[in-house]
């Protein structure tokens, strides 16, 4: 267990290479957007990070259901690892979104539905960690956090819908571009965007894998298994 599997090493290298490749592609081979300028290039990783975070939270909910059905603790490690990695990606999405919004809309924060939903998801999953830290027995912790992860993931669409409905009634005045990512993508931009989505999905799996090994080792250390 402690020794790193060869496959993971290969996967790490693959992840690093594809990430660097995508970064180079974005920096040097995508066109500069006509009104926003270079900062628009953050968009590729910004949306990809949000996507990866969302995927991780859905996986955490599914793993929670997996735990409640099978009662096997490794599902709990999956759930925990997915939530933690999802929080990191959510943080990346929010901060890069703010950096993008600052020069374009002249404000760090816009109460835009997707951004706000991501922020609320971060709060929900921070609460998930507070819940975990306040439970000691592994089985009970697994059971209650699984319930919370499932409830969280099913309220996310409701949250997004309600914030969007709220926004259509109180439209935010956004100067250039009209709305979030309202520029039209050229085929070249679209290709870079799809590649970024793929690369971030690989990155998500890689980080998740490492986090899962940590969770497993941590459990074995605590229970005294070898």
């Amino acid at each position: 267990m402690i020794n790193k599997p060869k496959l993971l090493t290969v996967f790490d290298i693959l992840t690093a290479l594809t990430l660097l490749g995508a970064l180079a592609l974005i920096l040097f081979w995508t066109p500069v957007e006509i009104t926003m300028g270079p900062v628009q290039k953050v968009f590729y990783f910004h949306v990809s990070a949000a996507w990866a975070g969302m995927l991780a939270f859905v996986a955490a909910g599914a793993a929670g259901a997996g735990y409640l059905i099978t009662r096997k603790l490794h599902w709990d490690w999956v759930s925990l690892s997915a939530v933690e990695v999802g929080l990191v990606f959510g943080l990346i999405a929010i901060l890069s979104g703010m950096i993008w919004a600052q020069p374009i809309w002249n404000t760090w924060w816009v109460w835009e539905p997707r951004l706000t939903t991501t922020a609320i998801m971060e709060l929900i999953y921070l609460a998930y960690f507070i819940l975990r830290s306040s439970l000691e027995t592994p089985e009970k912790r697994a059971r209650l956090s699984a319930v919370f992860a499932i409830i969280s993931v099913i309220t996310v669409p409701l949250t997004f819908f309600s914030i969007r409905l709220f926004r259509t009634i109180h439209p935010v005045v956004i100067a250039p571009g009209g709305g979030d990512s309202a520029f039209s993508m050229t085929p070249c931009m679209l290709r870079a965007f799809l590649i970024s989505l793929g690369v971030f999905t690989i990155l998500l799996v890689d980080l998740f894998w490492h986090r899962y090994r940590l969770a497993k080792l941590n459990y074995k250390n605590q229970t005294g298994e070898n």
Binding site: I130, L131, T155
Partner: peptide
């Protein structure tokens, strides 16, 4: 009922409840 099972007891409830109940509160306020 969930938070009373934890070590933090009732302190946990608002932290768990508010973000999950947000869509309800938005709809109710509006």
């Amino acid at each position: 009922v969930l938070s009373i099972q934890t070590r933090a007891r009732d302190v946990l409830l608002p932290v768990l409840l508010f973000p999950l109940a947000l869509p309800i509160l938005i709809a109710a306020v509006e």
